[in-house]
Design a protein around this nucleic acid. Structure first.
Length: 233
DNA sequence: TGGCTATCGGCGTCAGACAC
DNA sequence: GTGTCTGACGCCGATAGCCA
């Protein structure tokens, strides 16, 4: 048998006795377009995005003439992978420190449904430290300032007294988000957005809803949303 | 509710082209 | 000859969909 590497080389047409493959190159315009997409996204673009780029590239004069090679899905996918990999390597070389968040959201095992005292959480509040929404465990105090809206001292669920914050009642406190059955396109909801370096609860507007049957594992519906803070979907 | 399968995304690595 | 850049490929884990 042959090793996976040999098989890969054979597939690329580089084994002895075979014709060398034609070298594929993206045009400057294609690279510029993909870099634009890369800047706008926080990760690998989804298949529809890649397919849209392919359609766009293959419709251009650069790809429609005689003997021109159309762009394929894997080539665009590989380009994003390679570019992201190169960027991360450059970042490591520059010894860039990780972004200091200072206030980490409750991620991972926490379901967000139960407060620290075992009861149902009623409110959520927006932390001024990072703009993310967190469940409220308790309102510790309140104050009235003449020139501003009233404020409350919020104790966040799963966080200690050192993380308490004074928060504007009108702008930073609200009832918890709707249950999924009540969510409709256009609704403002709170989403848990998990990125590579940070995860937090942020506002988003619902674009599409795919209803699915619930079971003991919980809600299996799917929601296409647009995040308010960066307009990504 | 759990198992199976297909698909997708992330990652490591290789090979060819090119500049020096 | 060497290093860098770019495109390609395989592997693996996570997830969705399907079904019993």
């Amino acid at each position: 048998g042959i090793s996976p590497r040999q098989a890969g080389a054979a597939a690329r047409g580089t084994m002895a006795g075979q014709q060398p493959r034609l070298v594929f190159r993206f045009t400057h315009a294609e690279v510029a377009k993909m870099e634009e997409v890369l800047r706008d996204l926080d990760g690998m673009p989804k298949r529809p995005v890649i397919q849209g780029l392919i359609d766009h590239f293959n419709a251009s004069p650069d790809r429609t003439g005689d003997g021109r090679v159309p762009v394929q899905y894997n080539q665009v996918r590989n380009w994003f992978h390679n570019r992201r990999s190169a960027q991360s390597q450059r970042s490591r070389k520059m010894m860039l420190p990780p972004v200091a968040e200072g206030h980490h959201p409750v991620a991972g095992s926490y379901s967000g449904n139960i407060s620290s005292d075992g009861g149902h959480v009623q409110f959520e509040a927006k932390s001024a430290r990072n703009g993310a929404w967190y469940d409220v465990a308790a309102f510790m105090d309140h104050r009235f300032i003449e020139t501003r809206d009233p404020e409350v001292l919020v104790r966040f669920t799963w966080l200690g007294p050192e993380e308490d914050e004074w928060i504007d009642v009108c702008k930073g406190v609200r009832l918890r988000s709707l249950q999924c059955v009540a969510v409709l396109p256009g609704d403002l909801i709170l989403c848990f957005k998990e990125g590579k370096e940070k995860a937090r609860y942020v506002d988003a507007h619902v674009l599409q809803v795919q209803r699915r049957r619930h079971d003991v594992r919980g809600c299996r519906c799917r929601f296409l949303v647009c995040y308010d803070h960066d307009h990504s979907e």
